[in-house]
Every structure is written in C-alpha cells, then in structure tokens.
C-alpha cells in the first residue's frame, strides 16, 4: 500500500512542488495550507508522515507539532523551514527530522524515504 504524506505549508508553490516530487517517489500526498486544516485532515485521513512548515500565519508549525505529538505520538513529522536556527527551539526537539528548505530537494526526499521505511 502507498504511504500517505501530509504536506502543511502556507505557500502554494511549495505545496505543489513537494506534492509532485513525493508522488514521483511513490507516495500519496495530501495538502493543507494551515495548521488548523492540517489537524482536521489528520482526524479524517490515514496519514503516515507529516511535512510541516514552521512559519505560517495563524497556528505556527511548532504549535501544530505539539498538538500532533499529543494526539498521535507515533506519527512521524519532518519540520521544514528557511531558518536554520529553529533547530534549537524546545518545541522542535519532538520532530523526527529537520530540513532547511532548499530548491535542492534531495535531502528532504532522503529523509522522507528513511522515515517511511523505518516506520513500515
């Protein structure tokens, strides 16, 4: 069965880019443009992995991460952001991986494959 990845990012371009790239890698992809929408999708859909942007209007990625980990402790989350220094923030320790956004998507895809293999 195909793995389902939820991409949470307020930028449409990033959502589309990640979706196409991950579908090529053989994943099913769901999209959410905000933290609130992401939590709704997680309630109804069967998600194997969340790609989470940190800086979003409304609920930010760190808060979403905390809520996700409270409810679905085992669900892996990869944090994506332009800022390298979020790494040190307490709230982000709970994520399973941390990727600094780049137009070179190899690192992100490696981590996605890694985590999905680990949890299968």
């Amino acid at each position: 069965m195909k793995k389902r990845v939820l991409i949470v990012d307020d930028e449409e371009g990033i959502r589309l880019l990640y979706k196409e790239e991950l579908e090529e890698e053989g994943c099913d992809v769901e999209l959410a443009s905000s933290g609130e929408e992401a939590l709704e999708k997680l309630e109804s859909d069967n998600i194997d992995l969340v790609l989470l942007d940190i800086k979003m209007p409304g609920m930010d990625g760190v808060e979403v991460l905390r809520k996700v980990k409270e409810r679905w402790k085992e669900l892996p989350v990869i944090l994506c952001t332009a800022y390298p220094h979020y790494k040190q923030e307490f709230g982000t320790w709970a994520s399973d991986a941390y990727v600094v956004k780049s137009s070179d998507l190899r690192e992100l895809k490696e981590k996605v494959k890694d985590i999905l293999k680990m949890s299968s």
Partner: peptide
C-alpha cells in the same frame, strides 16, 4: 528579507529542476 525571499526561491529552483 532573506526569509521572505527564500520560500519563493525554493519554488523557482524546485520547479526548474522538475
């Protein structure tokens, strides 16, 4: 500024690769 510019760059570069 750098943060705001980086996101669009990821899209531009990523789609160029595609």
């Amino acid at each position: 500024l750098a943060h705001e510019i980086k996101n669009p760059l990821v899209s531009i570069g990523g789609f160029a690769t595609r």
